Structure formats: structure tokens, C-alpha cells
Simulated scan of single mutants.
Amino acid sequence: MADVVGAMLVRNGEVLLGLRAAHKSFAGDWDIIGGHIESGETAWAALCRELIEEIGVECVAGDPLGTLNIGSGSHPSVLHVYSVSLWEGEPSLQNDEHVKIRWFGLGEAEHLPNLATPLYRAMFASLCCRS
């Protein structure tokens, strides 16, 4: 089972999502930013590394939102999701994981038909209630 981590960057009632590239898993789906936790890494350290690698921002503050069981069959994964509310830098694509990044209102994100996992919907709803 793989351990992965993902960030819901949140500002002004919006969440940042990335549109997955055609050559990646969940191709064509809107997904949170993140990736695999490497050996010896904490979930938070992995999250901060992934945010730098994928969108060029440095984590400053965030809170755990929950853990999701994703993937299927021979590729199950545990996804540790964080709400990140403070970072340094302006998000921009840094590699080929995503073809686009975009800010969505939390209510809008909750109703996107092509999310990498529908399990994100409850997390968007809980973030909406915190705003």
C-alpha cells in the first residue's frame, strides 16, 4: 500500500486544483496537489516537497483534514490530506503532473464532475463551513 499526501490550498473561499496530464494516473481529472511520501519522510515534509516540485510554493502553515483510502485492486493508496492556508510564492506549474491549475470556489469544486476522487467533496464541504 502506498502512502501519499495531498494539499488543498485555500484562500478567499477558493481551493487550488490541478488538471491531471494525459500520461498520469487520474488523467483529465481535477486533483489536489501532492504525491508519494518517500522513505523516512513525514507526511508534512512530503507535502512541502511536493508543493515546491509541482507548483513552486513553500508551505508555511496547514492542518490535517483527514485520510482517504484511494486507488483500487493492486494499487491501493492511503492519501493524507492537508488544508494549507499559508504559503510563500504564487502557484504556477513546475512540472508535467498537471496541464493546468485553477482556483475554484469551494461550492463549485464540490460539484465538479471530473474529480480524481469523489471523496474530496466532503472535504470541500467541511472547508466551506470553516470559511
Rank of each mutant, 00 (worst) to 15 (best):
L68V: 06
L93A: 01
R130F: 04
H111N: 11
L93I: 01
G105M: 01
S77I: 03
A61W: 11
E53L: 15
V99N: 00
L112K: 12
S131P: 01
P76L: 12
C128Q: 15
P113G: 10
A125L: 07
W103V: 04
G56S: 07
A43P: 03
G73L: 07
C48M: 06
G34I: 14
H36G: 12
Y120V: 02
V15D: 10
E90P: 02
L16M: 02
C128I: 03
L115A: 10
G107T: 06
V15W: 01
A7E: 01
Y82H: 14
Q94K: 13
S92R: 14
G28H: 04
V84M: 13
M123E: 12
E50M: 14
G71E: 12
G89E: 03
A125Y: 05
G6C: 04
G105S: 01
M1Y: 07
M1G: 09
G56P: 07
N95I: 04
A116K: 12
A45P: 00
I32R: 05
A7P: 00
V60L: 14
I70M: 09
Y82D: 05
A27L: 12
S77Y: 08
F26W: 09
E58F: 11
L127Y: 10
D29H: 15
M1I: 08
L47W: 07
A122D: 14
G71K: 09
H111T: 13
A122Q: 14
V15F: 03
V4A: 12
E53G: 07
N69C: 02
P113R: 10
L16S: 01
C129H: 13
P76V: 08
H98G: 02
E110K: 13
A22F: 01
S39T: 10
P91A: 02
P118C: 06
L16V: 02
G73N: 08
G18K: 03
L79Q: 10
S126F: 05
S77A: 14
A43Q: 05
E108G: 01
P91Q: 01
L119E: 14
G56F: 11
V81N: 11
S72F: 08
S74C: 04
F104D: 02
L9K: 04
G13N: 11
G56H: 12
P64K: 13
M8P: 04
S92I: 01
S131W: 09
A45R: 14
G73Y: 05
C129I: 04
L9Y: 06
E38I: 03
F104V: 08
C129A: 15
S131H: 13
W87L: 06
E88H: 09
A45S: 15
A116D: 07
G13E: 10
L106Y: 06
E97D: 12
S25W: 10
Y82Q: 00
